[in-house]
């Protein structure tokens, strides 16, 4: 379970998160919507431990641990996974090598045996196939020369292999055509279990047709200003965010 209590965070002098309260029980998928600049990406970075964000108040507890005090790699081992809004390119680093290094680092921290190259490739090929990715994906350098959609799918491939307990998807649907969108949604749905939860950040209702959320939240002005059932997304689609900030 993820519990965020009165979370305040700033970048330099600028306060971006201004008292976020949010509870995501295990087994649930919550959507976060909200206008540009509301602080959605900031929230996902603060949860996954990026430098440059100063938490001034509040806490974020995942499975009983205060994640804000943990190094990013420790959070990853604890099961937190962020699918980046803008996945990063790693020149010269093969995708398969990157994935295996990551997976084995996490397995080591969890006290599990490392996978050898053969066992890993078998796993990776199967995951790539489910995501309808060509096999040469694994051979290419991490995100280098990938199209926007390919980068997002690569994030999903990583998620599928790392098997997180809490996935944060930051606009993973942006820039995807409808077929790719379905594939991404299937990737998330495949992970659904009583132990898995997800925060799905999106601007579009259409993703939520495929990943049906248990709760929809609206983040505006650095706070959760409304929460509701999946119908809230439809309402937002129809009327926009106007007036919500004041609420």
């Amino acid at each position: 379970m993820l519990e965020i209590k009165n979370l305040h965070a700033r970048i330099g002098e600028k306060e971006i998160l201004r008292g976020v309260n949010l509870v995501v029980p295990d087994g649930e998928i919550h959507a976060i919507m909200g206008p540009n600049g509301a602080g959605k990406s900031t929230l996902s970075y603060v949860l996954s431990g990026r430098d440059g964000y100063e938490v001034t108040e509040g806490e974020a507890i995942y499975n009983g641990q205060n994640v804000l005090e943990m190094e990013p790699e420790v959070r990853a081992a604890a099961g937190i996974f962020l699918a980046f809004q803008y996945p990063v390119e790693l020149t010269g680093v093969g995708n398969a090598n990157f994935l295996r290094t990551a997976l084995n680092a996490i397995r080591r921290k969890r006290g599990e045996a490392e996978l050898d190259a053969v066992a890993f490739l078998k796993l990776a090929r199967a995951a790539a196939k489910t995501l309808q990715m060509k096999e040469d994906f694994l051979k290419r350098n991490v995100n280098v020369g990938f199209s926007g959609g390919e980068k997002k799918r690569n994030e999903m491939l990583q998620m599928a292999l790392l098997q997180p307990g809490l996935a944060i998807l930051d606009e993973t649907d942006s820039g995807l055509d409808i077929d790719a969108l379905k594939i991404v949604a299937e990737g998330v749905n495949a992970l659904r279990s009583p132990k898995f939860s997800a925060l799905v950040i999106t601007h579009y209702q259409r993703l939520l047709d495929h990943i049906v959320p248990d709760v929809v939240h609206v983040l505006a002005g650095g706070r959760i200003v409304r929460s509701g059932s999946k119908e809230l997304a439809l309402e937002l689609e129809a009327h926009g965010y106007a007036g919500l900030e004041a609420a």
Partner: peptide, 11 residues
């Protein structure tokens, strides 16, 4: 780049 790697579990 460093953060991306670390968020995937690498030290």
């Amino acid at each position: 780049q460093l953060f991306y790697c670390r968020s995937r579990g690498l030290s």
